[in-house]
Structures are given as structure tokens and as C-alpha cells.
């Protein structure tokens, strides 16, 4: 244990937070606020190879592997997307590769954000989750050689 709560604990925290909102404005203002608070990536990390495809906005993501856990950092030029990334990072960053790979991310539906998972070219949430899981798999493969 490193003191990081499990995925399911964090997910239910987020679901509880969103339950407080009874209109879309409050919900999105909360996401916008999270987006603004997400630490910025350095310009050096905003390299083409760190870009996630499939988003209308530009999303950069980097990951590192420390003591058996995968840590993510990300940035975007669009604020709502940054807010959504911030939530994904809150849930997945600092977990083990196996936990990340197995996470079902059902909380997104529970907070009413599943439209952002839709398979259209404008929504990148699906691509972000996929990339986080791919990174986790890559770290797992590298470290179990």
C-alpha cells in the first residue's frame, strides 16, 4: 500500500460528488474547474508522440512507472477535456498496471458523462482511457520480462 485509495473507492467518491449537482451547468462548471486545476505538462512533454489520436482537441499524455505503480500526467488545449482527464488521472494514476487494465470505468456512466464516450470523432474520452490502459500494459510487459 502507498496510501492511494483503490479505484473503486475513488470512483464512488466522484459519484457522490456529482450526486450533489442537480443541473448540467453545475456539473460542467465542476469539470471546467477540475480542468483548470490540472497541473500543466511542460512544453517538452507536448511532443507529437505523446499526443492521443481521436480527439477533436489536442491531448498529450505521459506515464511513468514507479515502485510497481503507473503514474499519469496529461494536458489538453480544451478545458472540458482537461477536466475529464483530470478525473481519469484521479482514478487511475498511482494504481498498479493490473488494476488499470482491469478497471471498468463504469463511474463515467453513473455521473452522466457517458455521452463523452460516444464513438464520434469529437469525443476523446474513449481514446484517453484506451491509451492509459495501453500504457499500463506496456509498463507491465517491460517490467515482467
Amino acid at each position: 500500500m502507498n496510501g492511494k485509495p483503490s479505484i473503486s473507492v475513488i470512483e464512488s467518491e466522484i459519484v457522490d460528488e456529482f450526486a450533489l449537482f442537480d443541473n448540467w451547468e453545475d456539473k460542467y462548471e465542476y469539470i471546467i474547474d477540475m480542468g483548470k486545476k490540472l497541473p500543466l505538462l511542460s512544453d517538452a512533454d507536448k511532443r507529437p508522440e505523446n499526443k492521443i489520436r481521436g480527439c477533436q482537441s489536442t491531448v498529450w499524455m505521459v506515464s511513468e512507472y514507479i515502485d510497481g505503480r503507473v503514474w499519469f500526467q496529461a494536458d489538453s488545449d480544451a478545458v472540458i477535456v482537461k477536466g475529464l482527464i483530470s478525473m481519469l488521472i484521479r482514478v487511475l494514476s498511482g494504481q498498479t498496471a493490473t488494476e488499470i487494465i482491469e478497471a471498468d470505468m463504469r463511474f463515467i456512466d453513473k455521473i452522466g458523462m457517458s455521452t463523452h464516450l460516444a464513438q464520434t470523432r469529437s469525443n476523446g474520452l474513449r481514446s484517453m482511457i484506451k491509451q492509459m490502459k495501453l500504457d499500463a500494459m506496456a509498463w507491465q510487459a517491460k517490467t515482467t520480462k
Binding site: 460542467y28 480544451a78 478545458v79 472540458i80 477535456v81
Partner: peptide, 13 residues
């Protein structure tokens, strides 16, 4: 200072 995607999402709502 506002990305078009943010505008589109908030107008859709």
C-alpha cells in the same frame, strides 16, 4: 481563450 470543442459541448447542453 476558449477552445471550440468546449463551446460546442456547452452549446449542445
Amino acid at each position: 481563450g476558449v477552445h471550440p470543442q468546449d463551446i460546442g459541448i456547452l452549446l449542445d447542453n
